[in-house]
């Protein structure tokens, strides 16, 4: 079967990039493999928090693939859309990081040993 080339004279292709079918299938297989990988890694003790880190890294990778290819951000003509994506992730990160930072330092009632008045003077 012949693939329609991305530049095929399609009537509505004027302002949308049309991906090859083959690419979508490759992306699909990649995503399934990464799902298998993240499941398999969960059964291996990587020590400490590394299981969580690896699982999240794989999830971020999968999400990026979906966003770039399935959601067409790779070829998006409206650049503002990229700003929107980065902003959403950034503000979610703010919410989580600052809240966790509060919880993590809540018990520290005395100042750390290096934080003396002379610290601010040099």
């Amino acid at each position: 079967m012949t693939q329609e080339a991305p530049s095929s004279p399609s009537a509505t292709a004027g302002f949308a990039h049309i991906e090859r079918k083959r690419l979508y299938i490759a992306i699909w297989i990649t995503l399934l493999c990464l799902t298998a990988l993240t499941t398999a890694v969960a059964y291996v003790d990587l020590g400490g928090a590394w299981n969580t880190v690896v699982a999240l890294l794989i999830a971020v990778g999968k999400a990026s693939i979906v966003v770039l290819f399935f959601m067409h951000v790779r070829h998006v003509i409206e650049r503002m859309i990229r700003v929107v994506i980065v902003a959403a992730i950034f503000f979610l990160a703010l919410l989580i990081i600052i809240t966790v930072a509060d919880i993590a330092t809540r018990g520290m009632l005395s100042s750390p040993h290096w934080l003396t008045p002379s610290f601010f003077l040099w």
Binding site: F91, L94, I98, R106, L109
Partner: peptide, 21 residues
């Protein structure tokens, strides 16, 4: 405005370091 919310919580048992920030 998204970085200041904890100033409502200075006396709520929030961490003093968060308070400084």
């Amino acid at each position: 405005s998204f970085l200041v919310w904890g100033h409502h919580m200075f006396v709520s048992g929030q961490s003093i370091y968060a308070g400084i920030f």
